[in-house]
Amino acid sequence: MKGKTHLVIGAAIGAAAAAYYPFTFKNAALYITISAFSALSADLDGSSMLSSKLSGVSRLLRELVLWAGILLAAGVIYLYAAQDRLYPEYTIIAVIVFLLGFVAKSGIIRNALVSAIGCGLIYAGWIYKMNWLMGFGLFVAWVPWLNHRGMTHTLWAAALWSAIGWGLEEQLHIKGIATVSAAGYLSHLIADTLTPSGVKWLYPLTKKSFKLPL
C-alpha cells in the first residue's frame, strides 16, 4: 500500500484521538504527528521505497517536510540556547517531521543518514536517562537495513513500538500517546495485509504471508 495511504490513516487516528481526549492544540499536534509517523515507521526499511517512482510533486513535498524538520530543530536549539530549557514535546515533533522527510528516500546514503540519527537518539536517551528514547533510536538505526516487509512488519515490531509509545507517554504525562502509537503502527500492518503481498505477521517463526486482498 502506498505511503500516502498509510499517512492519511495515521493522521485520521491521531485526529480521532485529539477529539476523544481532552483537547489542547499541543496535544492534538502530538497525537496527529506521532500517529502519522507510527503509521509510516514500518517502512523505514527502505529497500523497496524507490525514489524513481516519486512524482515531481511528491519530491517537492518530501523536501518541504525535510526542511520543515530542520527549521523546527533549529527553533528547538534556539529556545534551548536562549532559555536554557529543553522542550521535549517540540523536540519530539521536530525529530519526527525530520525523519518523515527520509521515509520517501532510498539507498545506502539515505540508510546511513537515518542510522546516524538513530545513534544520536540512542546517545540522547542515554544522557537524559530516557529508555524509550534509546529504544526509539535503536529502531531507527536498525530498520533501514532490513528487507522490506520483513521484521518491521511483524507482531514483535508492533509490540516494540507500543513499548516505545508507552515510555513516551510516561515521559510526557499525556494520556493516549501509547494508544495512538500502537494504533498507528498496527494500522500499517493491517493495511498491508489487505494487499496481494500480505504481511508476515509471525516472521521469523514462519515465512507465511497473511493476506486478505481487497
Rank of each mutant, 00 (worst) to 15 (best):
A16M: 15
Y21N: 04
I117L: 06
L64V: 05
A18S: 15
A116L: 15
S51C: 09
V76N: 07
V8G: 03
I177Y: 06
G118H: 15
L100E: 14
A159G: 08
G137W: 11
S47H: 07
E169A: 00
G198A: 04
L61A: 14
H153Q: 07
R110P: 12
W142M: 15
T154W: 01
L99G: 06
V57C: 06
S197W: 02
L71M: 09
A163C: 13
L72I: 08
M49P: 04
A158M: 08
G165W: 00
L54G: 02
G135H: 11
L66K: 09
L86H: 02
A159R: 05
Y80D: 04
L121N: 10
Y128N: 13
H173T: 08
L214T: 10
A73H: 14
G165L: 03
A15I: 15
W67M: 09
I127G: 06
A116G: 14
S41R: 04
L155D: 06
I108S: 09
V65K: 05
V143M: 05
A183R: 13
W166C: 02
L186G: 07
V97K: 01
L168D: 07
I92S: 12
L60M: 14
V143F: 03
V65L: 11
S35Q: 06
A11I: 14
L100Q: 10
A116Q: 11
I108W: 07
Y87M: 02
T152R: 07
L86F: 01
L79S: 08
V103S: 02
Y203I: 13
P196Y: 00
D45T: 09
H173G: 05
V143K: 07
L121C: 13
G167L: 11
E63N: 09
W166D: 00
I9N: 12
S115R: 07
R110V: 10
D192F: 01
L50R: 02
A19N: 14
V103E: 03
S187I: 11
S48W: 06
F23G: 02
N27M: 03
A163N: 06
F210A: 12
F136R: 01
R59H: 11
P88L: 00
K26F: 06
V65C: 05
S48P: 06
L54A: 05
S52L: 03
A36F: 01
K208N: 14
A19T: 15
P22Y: 06
Q171C: 12
L113F: 12
W126V: 11
A157F: 07
D43Q: 12
V140F: 07
A29I: 10
F210S: 14
I13P: 01
W145H: 15
L50C: 00
G3H: 05
S47Q: 15
I109G: 00
D43A: 02
W132G: 08
K53I: 04
Q171G: 08
I108F: 05
L30K: 04
L7V: 03
G165I: 01
I32E: 10
A73K: 08
T33E: 00
I70L: 09
F23I: 05
I9L: 12
G176F: 06
